[in-house]
Design a protein around this nucleic acid. Sequence first.
DNA 1: TACAGACGTTACAACGGTGTCATTCAGACA
DNA 2: TGTCTGAATGACACCGTTGTAACGTCTGTA
Lengths: 333, 333
Amino acid sequence: MIAVGMREVASAAGVSVSTVANVLSRPAIVAPATVERVRRAIDEVGYVPNGPARQLRGRPSPIVGSVTLDLANPFHAEVNRGIEDRLAEAGCVLLTCSTDLRPATETRLLRVLEQQGVRGIIISPADAAQLPAISRRGTPVVLLDHPKERLDLCAVAVDDVLGGRLAGEHLRARGHRRIAYLGATVDPAPVARRRAGLRAAVGEIIDVRVDMHPPSLGAAAAAAAERIVALAPTAVVCLNDTAALGLLDGLAALGVRVPADLSVVGYDDLPFARRLAPALTTVRQPTYQLGQAAAELLLDEERPGHTHREVRFQPSLVVRSSTTYIDEHRLTG
Amino acid sequence: MIAVGMREVASAAGVSVSTVANVLSRPAIVAPATVERVRRAIDEVGYVPNGPARQLRGRPSPIVGSVTLDLANPFHAEVNRGIEDRLAEAGCVLLTCSTDLRPATETRLLRVLEQQGVRGIIISPADAAQLPAISRRGTPVVLLDHPKERLDLCAVAVDDVLGGRLAGEHLRARGHRRIAYLGATVDPAPVARRRAGLRAAVGEIIDVRVDMHPPSLGAAAAAAAERIVALAPTAVVCLNDTAALGLLDGLAALGVRVPADLSVVGYDDLPFARRLAPALTTVRQPTYQLGQAAAELLLDEERPGHTHREVRFQPSLVVRSSTTYIDEHRLTG
DNA sequence: TACAGACGTTACAACGGTGTCATTCAGACA
DNA sequence: TGTCTGAATGACACCGTTGTAACGTCTGTA
């Protein structure tokens, strides 16, 4: 229980702490017999290197922090897998946390990560204001699924406007004119851009805004079903699949048939989307690649001539059976 | 970009570093005017405390590590929320990572967490062997969703045997006799116990084992559909809802109707379970409470008279439409 | 035998922050 | 005026690890 450090290893092996340090950091310069002896002593006394002390001496932290909006959303999990796989090659470890869309939580998490001197931060921000300062103070920051715009940071983003437009064009082509958008009272930037794309495609949209902080996103969407029905749209575009899932729940409870009475579009194409009743029309984002690109940019920050840049991906529409033609709707409804 | 430490703050405020330290740690003993001056200097020079240096001097880390089997599984996300909420009260921050069921990854993650001197570790282990040693060396470890058994650690567990039994009894009561179990080639301990409970309830089970490391769990389960159908069971119990989702996909592709041709049971009651086609019969675990209890146990580790103990929860069966009576099956099939 | 050079090992000073202890100084009182 | 008290501040050693530079030893050569 009492701390065992290099001192204990050294005395167990009958050498100085410097030699123990050498065995750990540059074993080539130590006599093989000594290396062996020290290694044995390390196992014997149960020595575990002290990370903070190493960091204090200038060794970089192996930890990269990932700050997500909602860990419960499998979208982030898949992105993280992309990040992790790339980082592992560089000997780093990814530790993730969730802000649940709360700026105060985000600030708290960022402060801890910066103070701990993590190797870098990959973040889907609720509020990007404080990020450039963190980057300037020396902790690399990469924006994820968030437009770079004028921020002096690296960013990986999906063309959200296009995503929204794809959904809108799909619905218009099927005759829909009264289209509702189910969003959060304060949409994160990328979500707001999806809405903008949708609006550009359909001319006008009926806004339905719900307070959806995780984990009640699904429940909030379900509760919004009644409000939406009262507004009599023929289609609803949801800010993401989790909200769409909740909405389907709420609609089912009201006896509203999808898509006969109302078409529903999601966003993200989560694994469950194609197995829902009805299978969900949604917009797919390249999640794994998004993560890989973010990790790549983060690692690039350490290279000398680095300049901040943005990598952009394209979303694609996945048409399933939760959307249908408005004429068909009129006939069957 | 050059590191700004207490030295810079001190000279900006015209005091010594000791005084700066005092302002930060024990502001009461410093003259109010000085406190004010130092605070201003801190903002002015953009000082951020150096966590590793503080830790080296004995201050505990604010970070608690959560090691999960599969971060993409919303089950873990919900558990983490329970942990986080409780930890936040204690001023801690939860950082999560995923082993994807790989013991090598688990070892790597645990090593980093221990070396960083985290405040504690909450883990759903793939392999619990190395955990007691970590605990003994001074990093508190709490087992999550894993039985304590003879391990000298705190644990939070669900009665997995009961969970499996509930699924089994449900199927037997509906006339099923040929029951398959869809599991992983190496089930984590709690999953193996679910199987044991199932077996105890139904007498004999047809084992179908698939290599399902995340993220291909769903795909692997889908691919197993054909094998399962060939074995002609009347019901399948899946190791969790994600596998059940994949299996439903695979069965649909084969034209097998659920539950008419085959009943399917999941485990976890993830949010999407009740919206699937058909709505999934599954076993629910108290996720959020599981997390809270784990956090509670972890915090208790720091108290003087602490002794390791286990907190156990009960699962419950949620019957939906993916399971039906075998007679009905015979008639309609 | 003396000496250069290679090799292996070690002493030491940092890294940034903290607590202990000593020091300084203003003000109060005899 | 001298002494004492208390508050406020600062000098310093230490936490565990690392790189540098210096050390000692040993081999081989002149």
